[in-house]
């Protein structure tokens, strides 16, 4: 079996299974956790608290006006590469063909040239993000292996993908195989590292927001 066949065959099958298992495990485990009982008298009704939670989900996704100057650049970087990633993942024809055969639905693609531009931009932003992480003192102290590895695996998928489309670094099959294989690795790593934020980010903001608003905090 050659590399491509292995990568999109057994390796993908296992990776997909591990991914689902891990994601469901962590979501179910998280959802069933007991929330610490609050003995204080609630400041807000449950309905109001939930509305507060929804507001918090939105407002936490935007720089707080007081800190815009300090955190704005970082958030812009973050938004930039996330949007780039979504476009490259969802609007590139071969990726759509991939999803199509997995889920049976397809959608229109963007021209390859546009995708190439976005992936190069995304790659550049990812480099900038890494640079910021290692140069920013606080951020550096907060970072652990998980942060760097999650960055590495995401970037690896992009780099191998770019190499495959640009036909550099070796025969196309090999690079394509590496690209799919690195994606398989990403799937496996996903639920167990910080990439899991994709599933956690909004629920945790909502839950925190609701709990805080129940206590009477402004959202």
């Amino acid at each position: 079996m050659d590399l491509v066949s292995f990568a999109r065959g057994p390796a993908l099958e296992v990776a997909l299974a591990v991914f689902c298992l891990g994601v469901v495990w962590r979501i179910v485990g998280f959802a069933l956790l007991r929330i610490r009982r609050n003995f204080n008298e609630p400041r807000n009704s449950l309905v109001k608290a939930i509305i507060g939670g929804v507001i918090a989900t939105g407002s936490r996704s935007w720089p707080h006006s007081e800190f815009t100057v300090r955190t704005g650049a970082g958030e812009a970087l973050g938004y930039g590469y996330h949007i780039g990633l979504f476009i490259v993942i969802l609007a590139f024809a071969p990726h759509i063909a991939f999803f199509g055969s997995l889920f049976g639905v397809t959608w229109p693609a963007l021209p390859n040239s546009v995708i190439t531009i976005f992936s190069v931009l995304t790659f550049t932003l990812l480099l900038a993000v890494l640079f910021r992480r290692v140069t920013h003192r606080v951020l550096r102290m907060l970072s652990n292996f998980d942060d760097y590895f999650s960055w590495f695996i995401t970037t690896l998928v992009i780099v191998t993908g770019l190499m495959a489309t640009a036909h550099i670094g070796g025969p196309y099959q090999t690079i394509l195989g590496l690209h799919i294989l690195s994606f398989d690795a990403l799937l496996v790593w996903f639920p167990f590292g910080k990439l899991m934020h994709a599933f956690y980010i909004f629920p945790s903001r909502a839950i925190n927001g609701t709990l805080l608003s129940r206590k009477g905090a402004a959202s």
Partner: peptide
């Protein structure tokens, strides 16, 4: 089936 399609 497309080259990028998974197969097992």
């Amino acid at each position: 089936s497309a080259l990028s399609a998974p197969r097992w």
